[in-house]
Design a protein around this nucleic acid. Structure first.
Lengths: 165, 165
DNA sequence: GTTATTGCAAACCATTTGCAAGTGT
DNA sequence: ACACTTGCAAATGGTTTGCAATAAC
């Protein structure tokens, strides 16, 4: 096992965030710790409003203002812990970018669900196309739109995007 | 030549928009005609602000309010004439979606330029992956981020994202 | 004539920011 | 001590909307 692989297994999101902050002469505050804990307690996609809601619902007094949540998510993005994946209704959707393999998304028109997938061939094709044009690729974002399997089956009721009734 | 191919060549954006509007019992107003003309006078990507600027700079009296521009771009999107391709600095970027082959984009971090490319293999791979998961694909959006060829060469000055000096 | 559309200004709404008080190092 | 951070409330900025006047059909 290489040193780097060993490192990957031992550096927690918290360690990684602390390291990022200290190199930037920033501080690991109580608020940042709370947000980090909440964000990595669950691997689902989330938007800022949902996170604020989760935090404000805590009964252990670990609450953080909305402004600080916005500021901290930005810092966690810079630290390589999170990335924005979509913007379905005018709000950014975040997901974990640390400790999870690179992947893309299928977005269901009907229920709004995001489905992850990974394909090595696509990645290497993108790489090839970019370098052929002298473009130095750092990352990519691929979203496939359509209807997911459950929503295509008319048997039962499915989630709707707008369930207002 | 098939009937459909023949049709593709004769149905102008204007015809297509008129058709869309009439089926929706909407009206082909002078303002919508002006915007359509301006949008299809040039195949570059644009954002709403740039379009408003182009319109307000016209010396033939063909000017349209900002609100109507927003409303009409939305209608043209529904009509299948335009699509949103990116959102670089908080503003949507539009491009022609009618009469142009499917393609994707590379976005330069340095100068903000968009570069189009098309690759059949990627499209068919995406198709294959989607159907393997029972996902009925309707479209996709692929953005490749990095640095473009001109911006990688340090010889001359290049456009900067923020040129504030 | 009826119904849709325009332009204006105000409203919207996610996100950002200035500032005074508070906290990590 | 010092510099950074927080929470609040106000500002920002692209986009949307209510409404009275106007135009398409």
């Amino acid at each position: 096992m290489s040193d780097i692989a060993a490192l990957d297994k031992t550096v927690s999101p918290s360690d990684k965030f602390r390291e990022f902050l200290s190199t930037k002469r920033k501080k690991f505050t109580r608020e940042r710790e709370i947000i980090l804990e909440e964000v990595f307690s669950d691997h689902e996609h989330f938007d800022t409003d949902q996170l604020v809601l989760r935090l404000s619902g805590r009964n252990d007094g670990k609450q953080v203002s909305r402004a600080t949540v916005y500021r901290t998510l930005g810092a966690m993005e810079q630290a390589g812990l999170l990335r924005k994946v979509a913007r379905p209704n005018g709000r950014e959707v975040w997901e974990h970018d640390y400790g999870y393999p690179q992947h893309d998304h299928m977005v269901c028109d009907k229920c709004g669900e995001l489905f992850e997938f990974h394909n090595e061939e696509i990645s290497s094709l993108i790489e090839k196309i970019a370098s052929a044009q002298g473009f130095l690729k750092t990352s990519h974002r691929l979203e496939v739109y359509g209807t997911c399997d459950p929503c295509r089956r008319p048997k039962k009721r499915r989630n709707r995007k707008l369930d207002l009734i």
